[in-house]
Write a protein that binds this DNA or RNA. Structure first.
Length: 845
DNA sequence: GTTAACGTGTCG
DNA sequence: CGACACGTTAAC
């Protein structure tokens, strides 16, 4: 549905980085945008940020996710630059698609990285297809808007707006100008706005239908970013070419100028403030004329135009070049387009694995509530959104943008090579603009609303707890406004990003990537040759303003506690009266709905939204096989505090899992089957004393040593008690280890650390032998009395000898010995012991 | 719900 | 082409 559109393709507005100097400074109060602000006594109509506060490195909103895998940027979880790059989200200036380079399916692809804007590039796909951002040549990374325009945040190589006056003076100029206007409008109060609105709307609509200019441009666009924009009919680079598309170009040009001007202001400011700009990677604006699209050099020239010092020195330039070269080389080596193929196959395998999964995650036994369809947890609107997304993608293993329901990106960009039609794009863009109509957005809104609902009280479980430093990310704004130097911004940022790990004390345990990501990361491509025109490829000199590390989404996602106020007991109707059915009755109805349906209900009205969030309706949450676990999903889980959580076969990361587990202290059942050990290892640092069921079936790469790590009590505990008492999961009564590559060593761990185990699933563990059964049932083993169910199906090394051993289990009710090929056919069965007295090994029954 | 401000349309 | 206006989005 439309929901998918919320993903890639659709343009995403960027937001300030909050870290650059511009962001950190306070409003000047003097520029005309400031003067327009209400707080400075203005009418507040312009709604623009202070000229001196124009962010120099606008970032993707933290809600941005990869078009392909649906996950957020994860660059902060790896160390090497290459990895960081391939795991960060990159937004294409041409197709607007946001994707992890590592998720790209294109082989040998080459992308052009925009050094000036964080997470910005011309994706390999577009580049390969010869699409170029109009400004192609300059490589400044201007992003093409839906209508072919260039976003304001794109830097340009235009000659510096020298003509413009510095901020102060400018404001004056503009002021007067605007003044007139304002007067006109202010006097007739409404006339102005009204008139405009009407017109605007109509026109906007029209515009949206307009055929893509970009298309045209693209078609003739000479391609490579280096190529001078001139030739292309499209919006040549900043210099507006007098072509038919002029109007748009002009607009962009215009905007670019504005941009440049703003930047100039900043630069000036900065120069003033800090004598030496460390990041002086720029060449003067005047110099970096986009018009000189000559090869990489030309492009380079433009780069510097970025937010940096107006004055540059040759040495600085040299440094730049060197850096560029260096980066080129590195990236070329990396062949940054992560290996698509391998990824695909991995995913497929995963899917297959899912199919054969024996220990189903489906067996939802926490009966308590009426049966409900699970799948697709949807928490708030958000979850719904993500759920929707994953649902969609799930059926199609290789998450190709094409497959996804996203028209725009797919057409323009999908992995499918020859796609050209940008037609979809435009329409898409429009939709984006009308965002509100998009399901995804709606969902978000819903959630937001709900959150808002519940907020107030205090954002409790927000991940920042844990560290002492994370106090107050919220005050930033006020700080800013009061003029206090928000020096804390940086720290608050970083603290936020570390909070998660800190809280689990696992900060250092660098979270590895799991699932599909691992495949990517693993791809060892290192053929420099891949990148043809290296010079223009992957240029990635350190951004003038170091792009602020994107905080992991989830960390910034607030998880608010349920509202303090009691839930309404009745449903208010428009008429003013209340619906005859009180809350309790409604809840009974809701109990019969699937989680998905509940999410739909949550969008009906606020009251229903709250009711549907009732924990009783969400005792079990099943996210199994959701291709990606998104921050909203995580917070949705936390809010619902399920008793049973199924994360089987998801790509949840270690960090996410840690974050989650540490906030689900009441969790009784956890299923992480099919997840990579690199993620599951998060449990080694978690504490879930209540856990009763742990499903580790088919955890990828899980070994005996891992199990030990998992079950053994924390080191400090051990030393404290001298001897390890119970392990971390000592209260677990049901453990599923199906399909793992474990040996008999494992049995000793179980005996030692899981004394209360009643149900043990060792099916498909091909390496275990009778020794395991012996250990489990030995006189010294507490399990010999506790075990009631033992699954040894498919344990091909188990022999007849285990049968007498099993008899030693006093409480054993069933033993599954099917597919144990060393047993006689007769013995290969599901042995059951209905009542204690009959507990005899029924080899033949 | 509120605030900041981005992105784009419109006017002069 | 610059300035202004404002719907919409992001963050809180």
């Amino acid at each position: 549905m439309s929901g998918s559109k919320a993903l890639g393709g659709a343009r995403r507005r960027r937001t300030r980085c909050r870290r650059c100097q511009a962001c950190m400074r306070t409003e000047c109060g003097e520029c005309h945008f400031c003067k327009d602000m209400k707080k400075f006594g203005g009418p507040g109509r312009m709604k623009q940020s202070c000229l001196l506060r124009q962010c120099t490195a606008p970032v993707l909103p933290h809600t941005a996710v990869c078009f392909s895998c649906g996950e957020a940027g994860k660059e902060d979880t790896v160390d090497t630059e290459e990895e960081k790059f391939s795991l960060s989200l990159m937004e294409c200036t041409i197709c607007n698609e946001i994707i992890h380079p590592s998720c790209l399916k294109m082989g040998k692809a080459e992308g052009i990285i925009n050094d000036e804007i964080p997470n910005c590039w011309e994706c390999p796909k577009c580049h390969k297809e010869g699409k170029t951002s109009k400004d192609g040549g300059d490589g400044s990374g201007k992003r093409r808007m839906d209508n072919g325009e260039v976003g304001r945040w794109k830097l340009t190589d235009d000659p510096p707006p020298t003509k413009k006056k510095p901020p102060s003076s400018l404001e004056d100029g503009g002021r007067q100008d605007g003044h007139k206007r304002k007067k006109e409008k202010e006097l007739p109060q409404d006339s102005g706005p009204k008139k405009k609105m009407k017109g605007a709307h109509e026109k906007r609509l029209k515009k949206k239908q307009k055929p893509n200019v970009s298309e045209t441009a693209e078609s003739n666009g000479p391609n490579s970013s280096t190529g001078g924009g001139q030739g292309s009919g499209g919006g040549s680079n900043s210099t507006q070419s007098p072509t038919s598309t002029a109007s748009q170009d002009q607009r962009s040009h215009h905007r670019e100028k504005l941009e440049r001007f703003k930047r100039m202001c900043q630069l000036l400011e900065r120069v003033r403030e800090s004598s030496s700009s460390s990041s002086s990677s720029s060449e003067s604006d005047s110099e970096s004329d986009s018009d000189s699209p000559s090869g990489s050099e030309g492009r380079r020239g433009s780069e510097p135009s970025s937010p940096v010092p107006v004055t540059y020195s040759n040495s600085a330039r040299e440094r730049n070049r060197e850096r560029d070269r260096e980066r080129d080389r590195r990236l070329a080596e990396l062949g940054f387009s992560a290996s698509e193929d391998s990824e695909g196959s991995v995913k497929e395998e995963e899917e297959e694995a899912v199919e054969e999964q024996v220990v189903g995650d489906k067996p939802r036994r926490r009966g308590e509530g009426p049966p409900r369809g699970r799948k697709g947890l949807t928490t708030d609107g958000n979850d719904e959104e993500s759920g929707e997304r994953s649902r969609k993608s799930t059926p199609l293993p290789p998450p190709s943008p094409l497959s996804s329901t996203q028209p725009p990106p797919s057409s323009g960009h999908g992995p499918s090579p020859g796609s050209e039609g940008f037609s979809g794009k435009r329409s898409n863009g429009s939709e984006t603009r009308n965002g509100r109509t998009r399901a995804g957005v709606r969902d978000r809104e819903t959630q937001e609303k709900e959150n808002a609902n519940n907020s107030s009280g205090g954002s409790v479980a927000n991940h920042r707890h844990g560290t002492g430093k994370g106090n107050k990310g919220n005050k930033i704004r006020s700080n800013k406004q009061t003029g206090s130097q928000p020096t804390s911004r940086n720290s608050s940022n970083s603290s936020a990003s570390t909070a998660t790990t800190t809280s689990n004390g696992g900060g250092g345990a660098g979270s590895n990537f799991s699932g599909g990501m691992s495949a990517l990361a693993a791809s060892p491509r290192s053929q420099p040759s891949r990148m043809a025109p290296r010079s223009q490829m992957m240029k990635r000199s350190p951004p003038a303003v170091p792009s602020p590390p994107r905080p992991v989404q989830m960390e910034r996602h607030l998880v608010r506690p349920p509202p303090a106020c009691p839930e309404p007991h009745c449903l208010p109707l428009d008429s003013g009266s209340s619906h005859v059915m009180p809350r309790d009755v409604w809840l009974r109805v809701f109990q019969h709905l699937s989680q998905r349906e509940l999410c739909v209900c949550m969008r009906v009205c606020r009251t229903w939204s709250r009711w549907c969030c009732d924990k009783r309706l969400w005792t079990q949450i099943d996210l199994s096989r959701q291709r990606s676990i998104t921050p909203p999903m995580l917070s949705g889980i936390i809010r619902r505090q399920p008793v049973s959580l199924n994360l089987g076969y998801t790509n949840i990361s270690k960090k996410q899992l840690m974050w989650l587990i540490n906030r689900l202290q009441g969790l009784l059942e956890l299923n992480v089957s099919g997840c990579p050990w690199s993620s599951v290892s998060a449990l080694c640092q978690a504490a879930c004393p209540c856990l009763r069921l742990l499903d580790l079936s088919r955890v990828e790469d899980m070994k005996d040593s891992h199990l030990r790590e998992l079950l053994a009590p924390p080191a400090d505990t051990r030393t404290a008690n001298g001897e390890s008492r119970g392990g971390r999961f000592q209260n677990v009564t049901e453990l599923r280890l199906a399909g793992l590559d474990l040996t008999d060593v494992m049995s000793r761990l179980l005996v030692r650390y899981l004394p209360h185990l009643t149900k043990l699933d060792l099916s498909q563990c091909g390496n275990i032998t009778d020794q395991t059964i012996h250990t489990l049932t030995s006189p010294m083993s507490p399990l010999k009395d506790s075990l009631t169910h033992l699954n040894l199906a498919g344990c091909v090394k188990v022999t007849e000898q285990c049968l007498p051993l099993l008899r030693r289990c006093a409480s054993l009710q069933s033993a599954d010995l099917r597919s144990c090929t060393l047993l006689t056919p007769d013995a290969c069965q599901l042995l059951s012991f209905p009542c204690p007295d009959d507990r005899v090994l029924l080899k033949n029954s």
